[in-house]
Design a protein around this nucleic acid. Structure first.
Lengths: 227, 227
DNA sequence: TTACTTATTAACCGTTTGGTTAAACTATTT
DNA sequence: AAATAGTTTAACCAAACGGTTAATAAGTAA
């Protein structure tokens, strides 16, 4: 029998703190900060409510921990992913696949993040400073320039990300409107959408250079991204 | 001095009920159902809290009124817009412009709707029945077929709508990350985006027929849209 | 004016909520 | 074993909340 110093592992192999974080993540992402109840989180974690305040001082502190963790799970993906692959097209493909996978696993995430971002825009400022993403727009521009893309890379990136995330964020509407409340049909649609979006990206990249339709080539306002 | 029977107009030319609805709309869209307080709504309307319960019986009833109104403002736009113009490309252009205008006017709307939709997916089912949108997917398909588009029209439509809405829904993130917290730069980006999205649509329509990249032409799962 | 209906308010009520406390339980140290 | 530090709980608390009530004010009809 070994002695455990820092944290003792509970019955199911999880620290109490870990159990709290898992439960809080579940409840907060579903109900949001305002809709979540501390008692619900305690029940979900199978512990006493006072323990929540013992580990995290207040509801807001606990929420902040969850929000930060969830936020970082989302945003820096592009951050990391943009350096990993040499082939530009393959990189875009990977991004689509990665985001589809992520959102598929936890469908509440997008609307949770979007909503809480609006509720506390100040916290985002702070989070973006902690993760060092201030260089991201510059790197994004360089990456696109090297690939010979002339247009505003933000337009393309936003189209890509929104294209993946939005169907999940709007699922409760799309489900009865387009998919007859059939989960399998929805899943198949998402499968098709991955291909659709990859193809969409390729079309844009290929055509953009040789085409006469000019989209504000001198995008002079791209450098104003101070923090 | 005229006599008023049905509803007397208050000092500022608005019925009390109208003042309540306006105030509730403002508070609910910003704070959400769970985050909104009846007292805040009463304050915003400049009336006593009990009046809220006098006109609408409960918080949920009041919320439902706002949610329905807001929801209908959004969804049936495509519904109406899809019949108005003969020219298919012009119609898509109009849709983009219309949605940009709408969301620009009330930036909280997208994240509010997306979030509350997740919170009560059951209510959406009911709302979709009231608005008669059951025919919409069929009409959408027909409209696209007539224009000679072979791919799944839902993919294209979703790309369009998400492309417009998402930048506003994610504005608190994009603002410091891409636009240096400068509202004017953001506005200019949205202007550019309208053009970008219109161009994007045209590219897809033009190329899709003559291209060898085949995106699941036999979209057999499109007809399963019962309600 | 009188009677009556509708609109509006201040005060109140029961419940829920985030948070605290003091005691009990568990492990580690001496 | 005794003392100590860390963990967990039941019970409690004040504030906030949605909702009610009883009384008042305002408009309408006779």
């Amino acid at each position: 029998m070994e002695t455990m110093k820092e944290q003792q592992t509970a019955n199911d192999g999880l620290t109490t703190e870990e159990k709290i974080l898992a439960a809080a993540g579940k409840v907060f992402t579903r109900k949001g900060m305002a809709g979540a109840r501390m008692q619900d989180i305690a029940n979900e974690a199978g512990i006493n409510k006072a323990l929540l305040h013992y580990y995290f001082r207040s509801k807001e502190k606990l929420f902040d921990a969850i929000f930060e963790k969830t936020f970082q799970q989302f945003v820096p993906l592009m951050h990391l992913e943009f350096d990993s692959t040499d082939d530009f097209r393959q990189m875009l493909r990977n991004m689509v696949r990665l985001y589809v996978m992520m959102v598929k696993k936890s469908p509440y995430l997008p609307s949770f993040l979007l909503n809480e971002m609006h509720q506390n825009p100040d916290k985002i400022q702070h989070l973006l400073l902690k993760m060092n993403v201030s260089e991201f727009p510059k790197r994004l521009q360089i990456r696109f320039s090297e690939a010979g893309i002339t247009g505003d890379p933000r337009q393309l990136l936003l189209t890509l990300i929104s294209g993946v995330i939005f169907p999940f964020a709007a699922k409760p509407l799309l489900m009865p409107l387009f998919f007859g409340n059939n989960e399998k049909i929805f899943d198949r649609f998402i499968e098709d959408r991955s291909v659709f979006l990859e193809d969409l990206m390729l079309r844009m990249l290929v055509n953009r250079e040789e085409d006469d339709i000019n989209l504000d080539s001198d995008n002079s306002n791209f450098n104003n991204n101070a923090l």
